[in-house]
């Protein structure tokens, strides 16, 4: 008998083929190709302006590519080219099977709405219609991201930076997505707050078998969370491989500079 789950894990969740994006004369992203498998964490590193955020936007279908394409294997097992999805399908994907964690929590949260409603919104968007169950699920998720349930009715503008980020994660994970995009999720946080967030992310990712594409300046973040690393420079992927390999034994001179922290973050 064939193990269906094993078979699913055998096939890539997302495949990028020759992705390119230009803004006028600036080639922000050039000829990027890779495959991402279920449960795999991929870190995209590189100096400022190297095209990391642009690539993330292309991969998540928020930006139309100038060339190449992205295919995603939907929950029904069928791989679809993102460019052929209708807007309704794309938005649905975004609030069910995908998550997006922003560096600035104000971009990913409704700052004036209670934490419970922030977490419950995705559930309501997919038709949950029982207040008690929505609230219970929101409470569970607050607990999982180490937010005191007593704060469930407080708006995130009363939260600390670290709490906001954890709330943003709960808000994204409540629909049990298979893929989460993160753009500098630990940026702007104190070191100790960062460490706690990374610990939490690491255990959630393992527990939920999440695939993650995380953009970061911080190689320590990449080392702690990711299985694989892609190094970008001038819009191109110049080196890619298993995280330990790339960070411990970089082949490219640019990566060597990055690793030895000679390049400014």
């Amino acid at each position: 008998m064939v193990d269906q789950a094993a078979l699913e894990n055998d096939q890539p969740l997302l495949v990028a083929t020759s992705l390119s994006k230009s803004f006028g004369r600036i080639a922000a992203c050039r000829d990027v190709s890779f495959s991402l498998y279920p449960g795999e964490v991929l870190a995209i590193v590189g100096e400022s302006g190297s095209g990391k955020s642009t690539l993330l936007q292309l991969l998540s279908g928020q930006l139309a590519a100038s060339g190449g394409h992205v295919s995603y294997r939907m929950r029904d097992g069928v791989a679809r080219d993102l460019a052929t999805l209708g807007e309704a399908e794309r938005r649905f994907l975004f609030r069910t099977d995908w998550g997006f964690v922003h560096q600035d929590p104000a971009q990913g949260l409704r700052m004036a709405v209670s934490a419970g409603a922030n977490v419950g919104e995705r559930l309501m968007a997919v038709g949950w219609n029982h207040y008690g169950r929505i609230r219970d699920t929101a409470s569970d998720w607050l607990t999982r991201v180490e937010i005191d349930v007593a704060r469930i009715d407080d708006a995130p503008r009363t939260y600390s930076g670290g709490m906001r980020q954890r709330l943003q994660i709960a808000r994204n994970l409540v629909t049990e997505p298979r893929l989460v995009f993160m753009d500098e999720p630990t940026g702007g946080l104190d070191v100790s707050v960062q460490a706690r967030l990374l610990d939490l992310l690491r255990s959630l990712v393992a527990e939920l078998h999440l695939a993650v594409i995380i953009v970061t300046h911080d190689l320590a973040v990449a080392r702690l969370l990711s299985h694989r690393v892609m190094v970008m420079k001038g819009g191109r992927v110049i080196e890619t491989g298993l995280t330990d390999q790339v960070l411990d034994d970089p082949r490219e001179p640019y990566t060597q500079l990055l690793v030895s922290s000679i390049l400014p973050p």
């Binding site: 938005r91 609030r95 209670s114 419950g120 309501m124 968007a125 997919v126």
Partner: peptide
């Protein structure tokens, strides 16, 4: 996409 409308009602009850 009317999930947001229920967010408002959720807030009321909360």
């Amino acid at each position: 996409e009317y999930g947001l409308m229920h967010v408002k009602l959720y807030e009321d009850i909360a």
